[in-house]
Write a protein that binds this DNA or RNA. Structure first.
Lengths: 103, 103
DNA sequence: ATATTGTGAAACTAATTGGTTTCCCATAAA
DNA sequence: TTTATGGGAAACCAATTAGTTTCACAATAT
């Protein structure tokens, strides 16, 4: 699960797609207009985003609307959260250094 | 900057390396023992982590100690934070799945 | 009925990735 | 001074990635 999310986030086009989808669901063509690449290329990115469960697809007639599904971003946030303690420790150590650096 | 970070995080070995480094700085050989791959392979991952500025290298004699530098993880966290507005009550359902996740 | 639109699928390509083995060098220890 | 250790660099390889063009097809619009 974690792998699917981080893999999906690794590509700048895919991250941009997610940001686009914050404004509402979009079809492949609408999305592809925002990028300098062909529709099939964007379609492949969407597939990877779908595999990572960062988007869901709603079929409406001949249209396929790609919806942002931000729940999985929480997986990434949670993983990163495990380092917050380290971050805090480092800041604390730094603080100590600063405090006895009064000469 | 964001690209370097997300690229570095895309590989499970690299994420595992970062987790290892939470316990303190390590040389390539020490790290490589934790994975079923050769030292040069791990060295390449370290290089990518360094390019993404997720680690720093301290040269001590013939040893090169790789230090976790968690500041850049905040870059990823900030990017993900832009989606916080989208979170809804589906998060509760997700929590169950997350808790039995490996990787 | 016909034309247009939104999309998927296949086949192909170039570049990148993730790994290997081998060899070499500098530092540290005997 | 010789040996052992920690690690870089090169050359190579297979698989994956990110893109392309072309074709096909079903749903909508005229």
């Amino acid at each position: 699960m974690t792998q699917g999310v981080f893999r999906a986030l690794a590509d700048p086009t895919r991250r941009a797609i997610l940001q686009q989808l914050r404004d509402g669901p979009r079809g492949v063509n609408a999305l592809a207009q925002g990028f300098e690449m062909s529709r099939p290329a964007v379609a492949k990115h969407l597939k990877i985003l779908e595999e990572g469960r960062l988007i869901t697809v709603e079929q409406r007639g001949r249209e396929r609307l790609n919806h942002l599904q931000p729940e999985m971003l929480a997986v990434a946030q949670r993983w990163l959260g495990f380092f917050d303690a380290f971050w805090d420790d480092k800041l604390a150590n730094l603080k100590l250094e600063v405090e006895r650096d009064d000469d």
